[in-house]
Computed example of a mutant assay.
Amino acid sequence: MKKSYKSDILEYIHLLKRGVDFEFAVPVPSISRLFNRLKEAGFIDEGTTEGCFKVIFGIPINRKKEDFEKVVWKRDLQLLRYFLFRIIKLESWKINSIAFDVFRSKSNTLVHLPKSDKKRLENASGIDLLKDIIDEYLGENEGKTLNGGNF
């Protein structure tokens, strides 16, 4: 039976979450800064590890150091949608798959990203801070693309 492209992406996400027995990538300072800024600003939970966060960039967990735990997004899901679409730049279904498999909400529920709602986004608490954090990250990585732009 021929596998679909969608099943390949889902399989890849699960591979990243299962992890490998070694450090897969050299440290990426801009991802570390992004991670720390999001934690400090209260977008992601204090208990989230950088290893789990890096999965969204296609970097597998080092299973000798930790098990994968979903990243807890503490703010409005419209902000998570905005964050993922700005940072990863993939088709909607891929981003929805990443959100579902890698994140959970502050109420410990599965994440289903809402449809884009510009008004809700503009009124969301923290949107200006999130834009600044993302712009800083993207500015540091201008001209560079992690994973060749693919997840």
Results as ranks from 00 to 15, higher is better:
residue 1 M to G: 10
residue 2 K to S: 05
residue 4 S to V: 10
residue 6 K to V: 08
residue 8 D to F: 11
residue 8 D to K: 14
residue 10 L to Q: 05
residue 14 H to G: 13
residue 15 L to E: 12
residue 16 L to S: 07
residue 16 L to D: 09
residue 18 R to S: 03
residue 19 G to L: 04
residue 20 V to T: 14
residue 21 D to T: 08
residue 23 E to I: 06
residue 24 F to A: 13
residue 24 F to C: 04
residue 27 P to N: 06
residue 28 V to K: 11
residue 29 P to G: 05
residue 30 S to T: 09
residue 31 I to E: 11
residue 31 I to A: 02
residue 31 I to K: 03
residue 34 L to K: 04
residue 35 F to Y: 15
residue 36 N to R: 14
residue 36 N to A: 14
residue 40 E to I: 08
residue 41 A to K: 04
residue 44 I to N: 01
residue 45 D to S: 11
residue 46 E to R: 10
residue 47 G to S: 12
residue 48 T to G: 01
residue 49 T to Q: 04
residue 52 C to P: 02
residue 52 C to N: 15
residue 54 K to P: 00
residue 54 K to W: 00
residue 56 I to Y: 09
residue 57 F to H: 11
residue 57 F to M: 07
residue 57 F to Q: 12
residue 57 F to A: 04
residue 57 F to P: 08
residue 58 G to R: 07
residue 59 I to Q: 11
residue 61 I to E: 08
residue 62 N to P: 07
residue 63 R to Y: 06
residue 64 K to Y: 12
residue 64 K to M: 15
residue 66 E to P: 01
residue 66 E to G: 00
residue 69 E to K: 14
residue 74 K to D: 09
residue 74 K to P: 02
residue 74 K to V: 09
residue 75 R to M: 03
residue 75 R to G: 01
residue 78 Q to S: 13
residue 82 Y to V: 05
residue 85 F to N: 12
residue 85 F to L: 10
residue 86 R to L: 08
residue 87 I to G: 07
residue 87 I to D: 06
residue 88 I to L: 14
residue 89 K to V: 02
residue 90 L to V: 00
residue 91 E to G: 13
residue 91 E to Q: 12
residue 92 S to N: 13
residue 92 S to R: 00
residue 92 S to G: 04
residue 95 I to C: 00
residue 96 N to F: 06
residue 98 I to S: 13
residue 99 A to D: 13
residue 99 A to W: 01
residue 101 D to V: 00
residue 101 D to S: 13
residue 102 V to C: 15
residue 102 V to R: 14
residue 103 F to V: 14
residue 103 F to P: 15
residue 103 F to L: 15
residue 106 K to R: 14
residue 107 S to G: 02
residue 109 T to M: 13
residue 109 T to A: 14
residue 111 V to W: 06
residue 114 P to A: 06
residue 114 P to Q: 04
residue 114 P to E: 04
residue 115 K to H: 10
residue 115 K to V: 05
residue 116 S to M: 11
residue 118 K to G: 04
residue 119 K to R: 14
residue 120 R to T: 08
residue 120 R to H: 03
residue 121 L to W: 04
residue 122 E to P: 00
residue 122 E to M: 06
residue 123 N to P: 00
residue 123 N to V: 00
residue 126 G to I: 10
residue 127 I to W: 03
residue 127 I to G: 02
residue 127 I to E: 08
residue 127 I to D: 01
residue 130 L to Q: 03
residue 134 I to W: 00
residue 135 D to C: 00
residue 137 Y to P: 07
residue 139 G to E: 03
residue 139 G to V: 08
residue 141 N to P: 01
residue 141 N to Q: 12
residue 143 G to D: 06
residue 144 K to Y: 09
residue 145 T to E: 07
residue 145 T to V: 05
residue 146 L to G: 12
residue 146 L to A: 07
residue 147 N to M: 00
residue 147 N to Q: 08
residue 148 G to F: 11
